[in-house]
């Protein structure tokens, strides 16, 4: 039987990473579609578009770090 505190801790970790992932997804969708439009006009901008596209990934990484700190702090892994 899993204790309520353990379940809530796991849920907190899940919310941390899920929120980050959803946020990243929403932002990347907007940047990605604009970037593709730009590349159709100027293919030499690939490098710059790639940078803009990957910048929001940091959000999900923060989510991951927070989730990891939660589960490590609670001794779940």
């Amino acid at each position: 039987m899993i204790e309520m505190s353990t379940a809530i801790t796991a849920l907190g970790a899940a919310i941390a990473i899920t929120g980050g992932a959803i946020g990243t997804g929403i932002v990347q969708a907007a940047i990605g579609s604009s970037g593709m439009g730009l590349l159709a006009e100027k293919p030499d901008m690939t490098g710059q578009v790639l940078i803009y596209l990957v910048i929001p990934e940091t959000i999900v990484i923060f989510g991951f770090v927070i989730a990891l700190l939660i589960v490590l702090g609670a001794g779940l892994i």
Binding site: E57, T58, I61, F62, F64, V65, L68
Partner: peptide, 12 residues
């Protein structure tokens, strides 16, 4: 700060 923490993606 954000850039340093960003390297934790290596573990991710």
């Amino acid at each position: 700060i954000t850039h340093t923490l960003s390297y934790s993606r290596l573990v991710g």
